[in-house]
């Protein structure tokens, strides 16, 4: 699991140090405060943690962020500059591991502690982007491999993972609970045929292109749990899980996320949704590991605040918006 990330002068960040929860980490903040960038940096670092990884961190960062040149990832300032990010991790062997990636605006880079960071172990690392990809999966994988497609690699990665066949053998109790939960919501199972996804139920097979976008997202989750991509020890990055989902389903979505955490998955979520945050607050139990990380701008610099309880956040842009609505409604409706 990841335990900490420090960033200096990379993308939107000048100086940031965030200690992470072993369970659920929720990033909130206005647009442009770097929630997605933060998750992508950690995702990239974990992709090279497996010693057999074929790509360098340079290549991964290039493919994930698609900058015109790698040096563009250094926070923009006058003249030449440099930046770095460090990620800390603790595996089951309890050995603290750490890597630091340094980059100049000319694109020169070096990774410090690379040997300590990598291990002969395959990690289950999943990044679920905001946009659904399952409906567009047929042919996408081979096209992405053969052609220069201007798609961030997270889209190809998620299609790759979703297409993996289910694991052999009996499913664990936790896994069965989770799959049942999702099955109840989407009213069926997810099956794959020739890189196409279908929802299978009593009425037959329904193509994913005909399925509501919100359900596709849960269908993706079903596939990832079924094929073991998300399991105990996995790290899941999920950008705006609430996107395209009716708030009515948020309670079930939150239950699934909490169950994943209880199963031992470390989860990173970026959200803009009040209902999602409120459901999480009301559904979490004392023993659940959960941290909220609020990102906000102060004097043009992005800062962070990490707390365990939602009401302790002093810079909650979502609540501030509701406060402002109350004030404006009073001003509009109140008669002298």
């Amino acid at each position: 699991m990841l335990t900490e990330i420090k960033i200096d002068n990379i993308t939107a960040f000048e100086n940031l140090d965030i200690k992470l929860s072993k369970g659920i980490n929720v990033f909130i903040g206005a647009n442009g405060t770097g929630k997605t960038h933060l998750m992508k940096l950690m995702y990239a670092a974990m992709l090279v943690a497996d010693v057999s990884s074929k790509k360098t961190l340079d290549q991964i960062l290039q493919n994930i962020f698609l900058p015109d040149s790698l040096g563009r990832l250094v926070k923009r300032s006058l003249g030449r500059g440099s930046g770095s990010f460090s990620v800390y991790r603790q595996d089951d062997d309890d050995t603290p591991r750490y890597m630091r990636y340094e980059l100049s605006s000319l694109g020169k880079s070096q990774t410090i502690n690379h040997r300590i960071w990598t291990k002969k172990q395959s990690y289950n690392i999943v990044y679920i982007p905001v946009k659904d990809m399952l409906a567009n999966s047929p042919g996408f994988k081979s096209l992405y491999e053969k052609r220069e497609l201007y798609f961030e690699s997270i889209y190809a990665d998620i299609v790759d993972l979703a297409l993996l066949p289910p694991l052999k053998g009996h499913a664990s109790k936790e896994k069965t609970i989770l799959l049942d939960l999702i099955q109840q919501i989407i009213d069926g199972k997810v099956i794959k045929k020739d890189e196409k996804f279908y929802l299978k139920n009593k009425q037959g097979n329904l193509e994913f292109t005909l399925l509501a976008e919100g359900y596709r997202k849960l269908g993706l989750l079903y596939s990832l749990i079924q094929n073991g991509s998300i399991s105990s020890g996995s790290i899941l990055f999920w950008d705006e899980p609430e996107a395209n989902l009716n708030p009515k389903l948020t309670q079930q979505l939150v239950n699934i996320i909490l169950e994943l955490q209880r199963m031992g998955t470390q989860i990173f979520i970026a959200t803009h949704d009040y209902v999602f945050l409120k459901e999480l607050e009301l559904s979490k139990k004392k023993e659940d590991a959960l941290m909220y990380h609020s990102l906000y701008k102060e004097n043009e610099e992005i800062k962070s605040q990490s707390v365990e309880n939602l009401n302790e956040i002093s810079n909650n842009v979502i609540n501030d918006t509701f406060d402002s609505l109350v004030g404006r409604a009073l001003g509009f409706e109140w008669e002298d």
Partner: peptide
Amino acid sequence: LKNFAVVNVKSWNKSPQL
């Protein structure tokens, strides 16, 4: 009834009307 509002303390104090 002329006016009606439900507020918490923070909103009360921020509102010029209240």
